[in-house]
Simulated scan of single mutants.
Amino acid sequence: MSNLVASQIMAHTDVASRAGSIEKWLAVADICRCLNNYNGVLEITSALNRSALYRLKKTWAKVCKQVGNPLL
């Protein structure tokens, strides 16, 4: 699942759509947390912490801080 999340985010070519995709996956991780699916939360957060995604400084700057802070 971690590969799926990372590839779905990296498939977007522009910064704004990548940021939107990150916000979507953060929302999915929050839903997983509410359902006590901690394995899903761990898979999504490990994908977001991969070096290929972590280095996207301009993309992370566009991610809504209210969405991004609780999980990362």
Rank of each mutant, 00 (worst) to 15 (best):
D30W: 01
L4C: 03
R33S: 12
A29K: 10
V41P: 12
L42W: 07
A11F: 12
P70H: 09
T45N: 09
K58S: 12
R33M: 06
V28T: 11
G40P: 07
N36A: 08
W60T: 06
E23D: 04
T13I: 08
T13W: 05
A52N: 12
R33G: 06
C32G: 09
W60N: 03
S51G: 00
V67D: 05
A52D: 15
G20T: 05
A11V: 06
S7E: 15
G40Q: 08
P70M: 14
N3W: 08
K24D: 02
K24T: 05
V63Q: 01
A27E: 11
N49S: 15
I22A: 03
V67R: 14
K24V: 02
K58C: 02
N49G: 15
K57V: 13
V5D: 03
V67Y: 04
L71K: 09
A47I: 07
R18V: 01
G68Y: 04
N69E: 14
V67Q: 11
E23C: 07
I9G: 02
C64L: 07
A61K: 11
N36Q: 09
N36S: 14
P70Y: 13
N3G: 14
A27H: 07
S51R: 13
R18G: 01
L71C: 08
M10F: 02
T45R: 15
A52V: 12
N36T: 06
Y38Q: 15
L53N: 02
S51T: 11
L56A: 04
L53G: 03
V41E: 09
L26H: 04
S17F: 03
A6T: 08
D30P: 00
S46D: 14
Q8R: 14
I9S: 03
I31D: 11
N36V: 04
V63D: 03
N36C: 04
V15Y: 00
L42M: 12
R50I: 04
D14Y: 09
H12N: 13
S17E: 15
N49A: 10
E43A: 14
V41F: 10
V28Y: 03
M10V: 02
V63F: 01
L71S: 05
N36W: 02
Y54K: 15
A6P: 00
Y54S: 13
N37F: 03
N39W: 06
S7L: 10
A11G: 04
